[in-house]
């Protein structure tokens, strides 16, 4: 470990992943900063953190990077594999590159920013997390999304927001298709304010007026007796 300049360096070529994560998980609140080097696409880097610390992951990662995050700010200087920032409770995760499938899945809170593209199932079953993707997202994103905001500066793949509950989806580019019960909705002043705030937090250069909002038509909430014959 190198504690120079207030930054503790954790080297995955010489330190076991479990030890690296234990060091981060036991960090005390304060102005502690960490960097993780020699990532080589390893899985489960910087997971389960629970303190307001800053972690920089210098390189691309494999599965489940920054999962279950609380309070910490984690920046990945590379791309992330499947399940990045899965089940985040609070804090911030910033990915400089691309994110593979189901980024931000089931997240309850916090902010996930993907500077590149996110692939399929981004924000699946999100429960309160905010996700801002500077590029495009893949198919089946925000499937069964319950709460929170998904902002996409680029395009969205097929079946966006299928079976969505009360999450808000904002897309600037093209949407390949909307999933069941997901519809375009009116952009009201409070949505423009919300969007402006999220774009600013995510360092995104875009105007709220350029986006369209999508959300639930709320037709799947209750059983429709007129459809009984279809079963």
């Amino acid at each position: 470990m190198n504690a120079d300049a207030g930054i503790t360096t954790l080297d995955l070529s010489t330190t076991e992943l479990r030890e690296v994560n234990e060091t981060l998980q036991s960090a005390r609140p304060g102005n502690r900063r960490y960097e993780i080097v020699n990532t080589r696409g390893a899985h489960a880097i910087a997971v389960g953190l629970d303190a307001p610390i800053e972690v920089t992951v210098k390189g691309s990662t494999g599965y489940y990077c920054a999962g279950m995050n609380k309070q910490a700010t984690i920046r990945v200087e590379g791309s992330v594999g499947p399940g990045a920032a899965e089940n985040m409770m609070s804090g911030t995760v910033i990915v400089d590159g691309d994110a593979s499938q189901y980024a931000g899945a089931t997240g309850h809170g916090g902010l996930l920013v993907v500077k590149g593209n996110a692939s399929s199932r981004c924000g699946i079953s999100m429960k309160g997390i905010d996700i801002v993707v500077h590029g495009n997202i893949g198919h089946m994103s925000a499937f069964m999304a319950q709460k929170g905001n998904l902002v996409v500066l680029g395009d969205a793949g097929a079946a966006l927001g299928d079976s969505i509950y009360e999450a808000r989806l904002f897309v600037r580019g093209e949407v390949a298709s909307l999933g069941a019960d997901c519809v375009e909705k009116e952009m009201r002043p409070e949505h423009l304010d919300l969007l402006a705030d999220l774009l600013a937090k995510a360092g995104a250069d875009a105007k709220p007026e350029e986006f369209k909002r999508y959300g639930s038509a709320r037709k799947l909430y209750n059983f429709n007796i007129d459809h009984a014959g279809e079963y």
């Binding site: 080589r40 696409g41 390893a42 691309s60 990662t61 494999g62 599965y63 791309s79 594999g81 590159g97 691309d98 593979s100 692939s119 893949g138």
Partner: peptide, 20 residues
Amino acid sequence: EYRAFADLPGIEAAKVWEPE
């Protein structure tokens, strides 16, 4: 997985993407 590329020459500067 990306892990498989970690030792390839010049991988830091490679174009890396997920096939659609």
